[in-house]
Every structure is written in C-alpha cells, then in structure tokens.
C-alpha cells in the first residue's frame, strides 16, 4: 500500500455563510488517478484548489507530499513547483508564444538554461501532439490546442501531482478527445492525477477511484466499475442518471 501523497483531514471551508467544504477526509496515493464529479457548487473545484493553496481552509489539515499546508515552515512557492495545475480557462500567457509559455517557469524556477528549457518544451509539445505550434501565440490556437499547451506547461516542471480543474468543460465537443487522449496517456505513465470532470468515459477508462461530491461533502467513492454499475447513494444515482443520459 503506497504512502498517501495527499491527505485531507477534517477539512472545512466557508465562503461567508456558505459551507463549501464540509468535514472532508481524503487520502490520495502516489500514482493514483482520482476523478471527482458532482453538481455545480458541490465544492469539487474548491477541493482541488486547496491542494496547491489557491484556496485557504478555515478548519482541518491538508498535507501534500509530506508538507502540512498550514505549517509556516512550508514554502508554498516551492510546493507549487511540484504540483501542476490545468485550468478550465487554460490561462496561457497571451503575451508569450507557446514555447515561452512552457519555458518560463523552467528558466525562472528550475534555473534551466534557455537551450535546455526549449529542448524540454519541444519534447513536451511532441508528446501533446502539436510540435509545429511552438512559435505561435495562444490567440492563434484552438481551445483544444491551448489546453494541450497548458498541460505541457504544467508537465514541464515535472510535478509529482497533476491537478485538472474541469479541463474540457470550456472546449467545443470535437476538441475534447484530443485533450482527454493526452490525459489518458499521462495516467498510463503513472502520474498522480486528480481530475474534476464530467467526462465519465475518461473516468471509466483510467481512473482508479471516483468521488462524488454534493454540497461540500464526499457522498460516495469507489472504483469505477462499482461506482457506475451500483451507486450506493440516492444522490449519486440521481446525478449519474442526469449526466450519463447523453
């Protein structure tokens, strides 16, 4: 049984009166692919954003890669270099071309030379399937291409954990698969991945565990087979019936 690389213990978060994370306990092993699903407002995005401290919690403990997030000795900037994040809105830097987007952190954080950083970036662009786009700017790419650049940008730092916050939700349907394919191959390589998504096909294919959240709580979790075939909770069943129809 591998060590837990991420641990949530009794995590609670409020946005004013709204209880967005309600006594969340979670343990993620290294190499695990975890899918989090749930209705809008269930707290799933907030949950993963707590992992790299883009969101702060009011109660409970989060430990990532052996470091407690609330510990003042924990250097959050250094920790974030080990946790890659892919956003729903891509968030590529518009004033830099594709190659520069990927190499920026490599040069400034990992202190790589420009040549070495560009070599790594180009290899990653091959891996995500768009090596010819290196000199182009984000505005010239389609959504699917931008998201693949965003994945390459996160992977360039060789993180231990990759977080995906609804990576395909802002994409036109015909581009969703090109992004999911990259994520599937990443999962098969053994990357620890936490993916907030509605793409249940992806979940079925590569996830080790699926979590259903509602109103800030983890309602149900289980292996994909069991989860889809025999959801135990009523709320899970209702949710699945709504999203698996089309």
């Amino acid at each position: 049984m591998k060590q837990a690389i991420i641990q949530f213990r009794g995590v609670n978060k409020w946005f004013g009166p709204l209880h967005v994370l309600n006594d969340v306990d979670l343990s993620v092993r290294a190499g695990e692919v975890l899918v989090i699903c749930g209705p809008s407002g269930s707290g799933k995005s907030t949950l993963i954003r707590c992992i790299n401290k883009l969101e702060l919690i009011q109660k409970g403990e989060i430990v990532v890669d052996g470091m407690a997030l609330s510990d003042p000795a924990t250097d959050i900037t250094k920790l974030r270099a080990e946790v890659g994040m892919v956003f729903q809105q891509f968030n590529l830097y518009p004033h830099m071309n594709v190659l520069q987007n990927i190499t920026l952190a490599l040069v400034k954080v990992r202190k790589q030379s420009r040549e070495e950083a560009e070599r790594i970036a180009r290899d990653l662009l091959v891996k995500v399937g768009i090596p010819e786009k290196a000199a182009q700017y984000p505005a010239q790419l389609s959504g699917g291409q931008q998201q693949r650049v965003a994945i390459a940008r996160a992977l360039a730092m060789q993180p231990k954990i990759m977080l995906f916050d609804e990576p395909t939700s802002a994409l036109d349907p015909e581009m969703i698969n090109e992004v999911l394919d990259v994520m599937v191959s990443l999962a098969k390589e053994g990357m620890t991945m936490i993916v907030v998504t509605h793409e249940m096909g992806f979940a079925r294919k590569v996830s080790h565990r699926i979590i259903f959240m509602d109103e800030g709580r983890i309602v149900e979790e289980g292996e994909p087979q069991a989860f889809f075939a025999n959801p135990k909770e009523e709320r899970t069943r209702t949710f699945l019936s709504k999203i698996l129809v089309h």
Partner: peptide, 20 residues
C-alpha cells in the same frame, strides 16, 4: 487566472508580477 497560472507553476510573487 493569470496570477493563478503563474503562481501554480512555482513562480514567486515577484517573478509572476514581472514576467506575467
């Protein structure tokens, strides 16, 4: 989202401000 993307790759607040 630009602040978040920059900080999430491990850039310090100063680096994020200057380069992004």
């Amino acid at each position: 989202g630009q602040h978040e993307a920059a900080r999430s790759t491990g850039l310090t607040p100063l680096q994020a401000a200057v380069f992004v």
